[in-house]
């Protein structure tokens, strides 16, 4: 009898651990847009990883640079080879948190706007990033959208003068991820 109580507690401890309110995705969409009068550049990555810990508000993102798809193959090659140097810096990561994470109630469907802050590491350079994100709860899943701008020069990405009019100095980044419970 006593033995079975131990087993029960043991199991319970695992249950609470598992339902530690962590949410994840491996198919988050990250896209960016560089818009100049001469050239519109768009690239998309559909396999970014994200984990959100609702107990603490901690949020982490990782994107493989080589996973970005461009319309033009040559752009994709130059992006990897010359600008982001994906062999040297294969991943871009974001480590931060949702400041007002207590606003998120997964038990109720609905939309809310939250503040996200943290460190974005790109091309080996880490910079602070603050942005608003829209969080929508749908049937126990968290759909998160965010749009922010980053300055190319901030991340030590050098653009040769020959193409400086084709590449925007400020690049718009869009993130769209649907997170499920991490089991």
């Amino acid at each position: 009898m006593k033995y079975s109580i131990y087993i029960l507690i043991l199991l319970l401890s695992h249950v609470t651990m598992v339902s530690g309110q962590k949410y994840f995705t491996k198919t988050g969409h990250v896209s960016f847009y560089s818009d100049t009068p001469l050239e519109k550049i768009e690239a998309q990555n559909k396999s970014s990883n994200c984990v959100l810990d609702l107990a603490t508000g901690k949020l982490e993102f990782a994107v493989l640079i080589k996973g970005f798809q461009f319309e033009k193959a040559l752009m994709q090659e130059h992006f990897n080879e010359n600008y982001l140097e994906s062999n040297k810096f294969p991943k871009a990561t974001f480590k931060g948190q949702i400041d007002n994470y207590t606003k998120i109630d997964v038990t109720k469907n609905g939309k809310s706007t939250v503040k996200v802050s943290g460190d974005l590491t790109l091309h080996g350079v880490t910079k602070k990033l603050n942005t608003d994100a829209v969080v929508e709860i749908k049937a126990g899943k968290i759909d998160a959208d965010a749009t922010f701008n980053i300055l190319v020069a901030d991340y030590n990405i050098s653009i040769p003068s020959l193409v400086k009019d084709q590449i925007a100095k400020s690049v718009k980044v869009k993130v769209d991820a649907t997170l499920e419970v991490l089991k």
């Binding site: 962590k22 994840f24 491996k26 990883n49 984990v51 959100l52 810990d53 901690k58 949020l59 982490e60 990782a62 493989l64 080589k66 996973g67 090659e77 990897n80 080879e81 990561t93 991490l182």
Partner: peptide, 17 residues
């Protein structure tokens, strides 16, 4: 490290250029 919870996904990395 929250991301380590997802485990390592092995992808094929094709050499280019």
């Amino acid at each position: 490290d929250l991301l380590s919870l997802l485990g390592d996904d092995e992808t094929t990395d094709y050499t280019n250029a």
